[in-house]
């Protein structure tokens, strides 16, 4: 784990933590750093930066479309790494790179870990990286570089497997709020609360961060009763889609979710 990640999760006064997901290279190829700077200034706690992929099966239409546009803009792994380096010249907020396995494999997986670590990324989230591959092939490589690897759990994941995924994750555990792809309406129901409260009761080693279906203060507060924080992705991409990189709009939105008076 990097010092940045350790500090983020050890400071309980900052909770609930707000994380934003957005796609590198969207809406423009060079938007990545300017958006990051605005987010940091607005009080976001950490960022998941999407590495676009042509076939993102775990994402909904909004994020998929942002990936397609980013790819059309010429985005690739090497450029994401260069942008992370650029971001690190002025920003300290932790960065988790989120993407699919294949672009990292084609870049060369160890070279990928070397370069993202050197550029200043703190960890990765690769939803299609199998637990067994990580355990057998990659775990040491992550640890050598102090990089976090974050696994996801869902309401259908059995307790035993949750404990295993927690053991193998570093930084935080990504808790999928409902069995659906990103961007669907959060089920404001008892089932979800029971699930989050159950996972909270496992006393896992990693802080829990909830993702999928969170879009506003109400949904943010609902899930962070049980967890250390939450991730907003689709709703933020929609904001970019509608307003472009509008500093005031982004700030207003972040403030509204965090419950900060503008």
């Amino acid at each position: 784990m990097t010092e940045r990640v350790k500090n983020l999760f050890s400071d309980s006064s900052r909770r609930p933590l707000l994380s934003i997901f957005y796609t590198a290279g969207y809406p423009e190829l060079d938007s990545t750093a300017p958006i990051f700077q605005i987010l940091e200034k607005s009080g976001v706690d950490f960022v998941e930066l999407g590495i676009p992929f042509s076939d993102p099966i775990a994402d909904g239409p909004v994020i998929q479309q942002s990936s397609a546009i980013a790819l059309d803009n010429g985005m690739n792994v090497a450029k994401v790494i260069a942008q992370v380096r650029e971001i690190r010249e002025s920003c300290e907020m932790p960065i988790f790179l989120m993407g699919y396995l294949n672009p990292a494999l084609q870049y060369g997986f160890e070279r990928f870990l070397d370069d993202i670590s050197e550029a200043g990324a703190d960890g990765v989230i690769l939803p299609d990286l199998p637990l067994l591959d990580y355990e057998r092939k990659y775990r040491e490589e992550f640890e050598k570089r102090n990089l976090s690897n974050v696994f996801l759990i869902t309401p259908q994941t059995p307790e035993e497997r949750i404990r295993k995924l927690d053991e193998l994750s570093t930084g935080f555990l990504y808790v999928v709020s409902s069995p659906s792809i990103t961007g669907s309406k959060l089920q404001m129901n008892q089932q979800r609360d029971e699930y989050l409260s159950r996972v909270q009761g496992y006393n896992l080693k990693n802080p829990l961060i909830v993702g999928f279906g969170i879009s506003d203060r109400e949904s943010f507060l609902a899930v962070t009763q049980y967890t250390a924080g939450a991730i907003i992705g689709t709703a933020f991409i929609r904001l970019l889609e509608e307003h472009g990189i509008d500093e005031r709009k982004i700030e207003e939105y972040i403030f509204s979710v965090k419950g900060v008076e503008a």
Partner: peptide
């Protein structure tokens, strides 16, 4: 027994699909 044909195959799916 692990779902591979030589170096090909496996189960490269998001956790969301793992229960199925």
């Amino acid at each position: 027994e692990n779902g591979y044909y030589g170096e090909f195959g496996g189960q490269y799916v998001p956790e969301l699909l793992m229960p199925n």
